[in-house]
Design a protein around this nucleic acid. Structure first.
Lengths: 220, 220
DNA sequence: TCGCTCGGGTTTGGATCCATAATTTAGTGC
DNA sequence: GCACTAAATTATGGATCCAAACCCGAGCGA
C-alpha cells in the first residue's frame, strides 16, 4: 500500500491489485483460502510474485497469513467490526481535517457527480464503489500517508460486512445516507471543519449502530 | 505483524525480528537503505526470506518500499510526526478501554515493576524500551488485532524521533512522565476508563507539544 | 466403535540461477 | 572543460527446482 510505484507496475503489484478487487467485490469471501499455485496459474506468473502480493494484501488488511498454513480472507465477528468502526470514527475526522483545505474545484465536482449518481439509484455493488470513492476522495489530500493508509485499511477490512448489510436492508433508509453526504459536502464547501467532523462522525456512528442490529450478518 | 506464528519461527519472521530490533534501536537510521544481499549474507540465508521480511517490516510501518529501487527506513518531517501523534491520541485510548477490563494481577505487577525501574533512572535506550513495554502492555488485552497492530505501527514509525527527543532533553522533565504514568496506573487499577483515557491523552498530547518545539530533530 | 499412528499427497518455505531495471562511470564530441 | 551518451556495474524482480511442514485418510489396536 505504501508503494510509490516508480512508473511500471511490478508483477507483484499487478497481482495484488487483481486479488484486491476480487476480495473487495466479494468474489473471494471471508474464510476462503488463497492457494498460491492456483493464483499463479490463473494470472500467468510463477508463485513468487503471488507470495509478495499476499504480503501486500496482508498489509492492506485484506488477508491474514499464518506460517506454513497459507493466507485466507479473515472472518470478523461482530465485536471486531464494531471496534473497526470506532477506529473509523476517530481516524477519519482527522484525515478529513488534514485533507479539507487542499480540496480542489475538480474534487468538489467529482464528489457532487458521485452523490448525484448515488441519489439516482444504483445497485448494491455500484453503491459500495461510489460510496468508497466519495469518502476516500475527501481524504485524498491528507498529506500523511500513514493516515491515508490506515483509513484505507479500515475500509478494506470492513467492506464485506458493509455489502452484507446493504443487501439485507436494501435501499430503505438510503435517504439518510444522502442527507448526511449532502450535509458533509456543504460543510466541506464552507471549509467548516467543525461541522464536517460532526457530520462525518454521525454518519459512521449511525452505520455502526444499524450494523450491530443485524448480528445475523456475522454468523458463518 | 498479523502472523499468529504456528510454533517455529519461519526464517522470514526471524529476519524481520532482527531487522526490526536494529531499526527500533537506531542501529539502522532513517534514510538508510536496506540491501537485500547484504542482509542475506549477514544473517546467513538467501535473499528470498529477506524480501519477505522487508514486506513484513513495510507492513509494520518501519520500511518504505519502492519498486525496483529497494527499501529504506523513511524520513519523516515534523508535520508527519505531528499527525502520527494525533493518531495516537485518538487510537490509543480506544485500545486502552478495550484492554483495561482484562488486565490481570500479573500485568499490574509488571507495570509497577517497569515504572519503578524508570523512576530509578535509566539511560535513554533502556527508557525507550521500558516505556514501550509499559504502554503496549496496557493495550495487550485489546481483543481486536487490527487495533493493536495499528497502535504498534504508530509506536514503530515514531520511535526514532522519540529517541532523538530524549537525547536532547535528557532527564530534565522526567518527573512529569512518572507522574503521568502513576496517575494512569491508578486509574487503571480503579477500572476508571474516563480517568484513564484523560491521563493517557494528556500524556501523548504533552509529548507531541514538547516534540514540536524541537524542529531541529527533523533536519537531515 | 472410537482413537491413535503412520503414511501419501498437497501446499508452503527456501535456495539458486537468470532477466530486467537503475545507477554509476568512462568516454566522446563540442 | 562541460555536457551528453553509452556501456558496465549493481541491485531488485521473477522462474524453476528442492526441502519441509501440514492435512487427510487408511489401517491398526484397544
Amino acid at each position: 500500500m505504501s508503494e510509490v510505484s516508480g512508473q511500471e507496475p511490478a508483477a507483484s503489484e499487478r497481482i495484488a491489485a487483481i486479488l484486491r478487487d476480487e476480495i473487495l467485490s466479494g468474489k473471494i469471501a471471508p474464510g476462503q483460502r488463497i492457494l498460491q499455485e492456483e493464483v499463479a496459474e490463473r494470472l500467468g506468473s510463477s508463485r513468487l510474485p503471488v507470495r509478495e502480493a499476499i504480503r501486500i494484501l496482508d498489509a492492506d488488511g485484506l488477508l491474514e497469513v499464518e506460517a506454513n498454513k497459507g493466507a485466507r480472507v479473515p472472518y470478523l465477528d461482530i465485536n471486531q467490526v464494531e471496534v473497526l468502526y470506532r477506529m473509523r470514527e476517530r481516524l477519519e475526522p482527522l484525515a478529513l481535517i488534514e485533507s479539507m483545505p487542499a480540496l480542489t474545484e475538480a474534487d468538489f465536482e467529482r464528489l457532487d457527480e458521485i452523490q448525484v449518481r448515488i441519489e439516482a439509484g444504483v445497485d448494491v455493488q455500484a453503491f459500495l464503489e461510489l460510496d468508497r470513492e466519495f469518502h476516500l476522495l475527501t481524504y485524498s489530500h491528507c498529506p500523511t500517508e500513514q493516515l491515508r493508509d490506515s483509513v484505507t485499511r479500515l475500509w478494506n477490512s470492513t467492506s464485506h460486512y458493509r455489502r452484507a448489510f446493504m443487501e439485507i436492508t436494501g435501499a430503505r433508509r438510503m435517504w439518510i445516507v444522502n442527507a448526511e453526504h449532502r450535509l458533509l459536502l456543504e460543510a466541506l464547501a464552507r471549509q467548516d471543519s467543525q461541522d464536517a467532523e460532526r457530520y462525518l462522525v454521525g454518519h459512521i456512528q449511525r452505520t455502526r449502530k444499524e450494523l450491530s442490529q443485524h448480528p445475523e450478518i456475522f454468523t458463518h
